[in-house]
Design a protein around this nucleic acid. Sequence first.
DNA 1: TGTTTATCTGAACGTGCGTTCAGATCAAGC
DNA 2: GCTTGATCTGAACGCACGTTCAGATAAACA
Lengths: 196, 196
Amino acid sequence: MARTAGSHSDITGPRIREAALRLFAKHGYAAVSMRRIASEVGVQAGALYNYIPDKQALLFSLLKGHMDELLEAWDETAPGGDPLARLEAFVRFHIRFTLRRPESIFISYMELRNLEPENFIQIEALRGRYEAVLEQILRDGQAAGNLSVPDTRIAAFALIGMLTGVNTWYREGGRLSEDEVAALYWDMARKAVGAG
Amino acid sequence: MARTAGSHSDITGPRIREAALRLFAKHGYAAVSMRRIASEVGVQAGALYNYIPDKQALLFSLLKGHMDELLEAWDETAPGGDPLARLEAFVRFHIRFTLRRPESIFISYMELRNLEPENFIQIEALRGRYEAVLEQILRDGQAAGNLSVPDTRIAAFALIGMLTGVNTWYREGGRLSEDEVAALYWDMARKAVGAG
DNA sequence: TGTTTATCTGAACGTGCGTTCAGATCAAGC
DNA sequence: GCTTGATCTGAACGCACGTTCAGATAAACA
């Protein structure tokens, strides 16, 4: 793993991010040292600073990258039409994203408190945009009479909480496939918003 | 705040736990130093060690205390009879507990990864017992035909995730009262398990 | 082939960490 | 009022932290 001095790397940058993501998810931002990340990459700690200004920027970059990717992926997926179909698309999209990027999802909920204020504000705004997507679907469905939600805002939080919870128990190669999980959650989500 | 040497304290013990709980919830276990906790209590760091063997034991004690209290409180509440009524009781109980002890709930989800293995196993076992309570209710309801849940295990996870998510957005003195929140969540939970 | 330049090493910096402990302090019991 | 013993201070321990930087290295380009 050890890298010789002067050797290059178009890959060191990405590897730093991957190692940091994995370690932050496993042990938490504050519990992971720069030396540990560096050693995972096969490099001395000082070399990290060719790629990032400091540790905080590394965390922020991971969270920002994740939220951007999440919103972008939704924009590509987002169907029009029937609110109920859009809700199903959202549920399946969120489950899939959560199962495929468990570490990103994990740290973007867990490490918010380790962001410095100005960074926190940015990530929080992106999260708000994502939640607003779901809330809009619920409002449209409510207006169209497709579903019955007493409080669309709280319902959006409740659904996202329910869906995201999947990564507290899901393990790859377990008893249920991704599609089965998605089907189960869609079944509950659909009923929960009164689209029985 | 400063305490004079030699002064006593039947209250220092509890105050240490309160300060640690608050600080761990706000900044995370790894990010909070013993000196910080001590200063919050108005004492030097060394004095903490009259009450706890080490930092890890402090975290464990908080989590263990919380889980014991949770299970005990449920045992006192737990109604018999109709599975649907028991489910409602569980939902309302969980919401109330989550709203009243947000910091305990928070750290007992967030700081699991900072527990040493043997401590983790214990807390995880208690959590399992709590989840089993809900799953049993769902199974009974399913058997009695009161509700329709394709997979009781996943449904239990989904419901707990949904309910616990309340403390990501709820703030005291906000737009909704505790009872209103409980009513909204009960409405969604009930429908989600097909007891429309 | 020789030079340049991005990359990395290895050592160092000041700081703060968890924990220990001898000694100071003071409430309580005689 | 004296003694006892629990409680706390304040200094110290070795260690790890994030970050910096001069110098070594080797790939890329002339």
